[in-house]
């Protein structure tokens, strides 16, 4: 179980983008976190992956509280998460060939010996040919690069996956292909998933449960099942300052 308890986080302690948010993901569960861009859901995803230290609150991974963030997190806690970001260009080291990009988490944790086999297994799964594996990021398309980034997130067999707007830059076919890859891995490994995004149709199709984040408010509206799409309060852009908490079942 992955528990986020009373998380307050942001980049300015006086004005946190995430205020007192709690969220629990069960073993093997897929939770979609829906919200407009800039609402703080990406920050919450980074907190969950131990990449951003919250101002308050705690993260509990399989019953064990996170003991630190970023480099201060113990390696076995950090590597319990596989993370995929929105922009493949930004999340790939431009100097590494795709093969090395995918193998990097294994090499960084002293599992060099497994690297070749594991990359060999994953490449056909995400649809990368040997020829593409030998290229650098600027020599492939966004879709191909994101395929490599998904492979990198899976290479060390994480127990939890955090996908932050993984498909926002991708066309429909690549989106379906990569969601398929993630789901196949989860079926085989039993990993849990937090998928952050703004596409309700996608997340409701993908996840067991979706959680909705209202603009500039304390979350959440919780919804279950298909298409619970209740229109939010119509407000001019970014001008809504009144907290709204709504729950629909």
């Amino acid at each position: 179980m992955l528990e986020l308890r009373g998380i307050t986080a942001g980049y300015d302690p006086r004005d946190p983008v995430v205020r007192d948010v709690s969220l629990t993901i069960g073993d093997g569960e897929a939770v979609g976190l829906l919200g407009p861009s800039g609402c703080g859901k990406s920050t919450l995803a980074r907190v969950a992956a131990l990449l951003h230290r919250p101002d308050a609150g705690s993260v509990v991974i399989d019953g064990e509280p996170a003991r630190g963030w970023r480099h201060r997190a113990p390696r076995e806690q950090r590597t319990a998460f596989g993370v995929v970001f929105q922009q493949p260009r930004q999340s790939a080291d431009p100097r590494l060939r795709l093969r090395d990009l995918i193998a990097e988490p294994l090499r960084a944790t002293g599992r060099r010996a497994e690297a070749d086999t594991r990359v060999g297994e994953l490449a056909p799964v995400v649809g990368l040919s040997a020829e593409l594996l030998a290229r650098r990021p600027h020599e492939v398309s966004d879709g191909q690069l994101q395929r490599a980034c998904v492979a990198r997130a899976l290479v060390a067999r994480p127990r939890w996956l955090i996908c932050d707007e993984m498909t926002a830059m991708l066309d429909a076919s690549t989106t379906a292909a990569l969601v398929g890859v993630v789901e196949a891995y989860r079926r085989e490994s039993g990993a849990g998933l937090l998928a952050v995004g703004h596409d309700a149709v996608l997340l409701e199709r993908w996840c067991d449960r979706t959680v909705r984040w209202e603009p500039l408010t304390r979350p959440f509206t919780v919804s279950r099942g298909l298409r619970p799409r209740t229109p939010g309060p119509q407000t001019p852009d970014g001008l809504n300052t009144v907290p709204v908490i709504r729950v629909t079942q």
Binding site: D171, A172, S173, T174, T175, A176, D199, R205, W206
Partner: peptide, 18 residues
Amino acid sequence: RGLLDALPERAFAPVPGM
């Protein structure tokens, strides 16, 4: 047809290959 079928509101199945 494959592109439309890949949409999550339809079959959600990718066009095979690249």
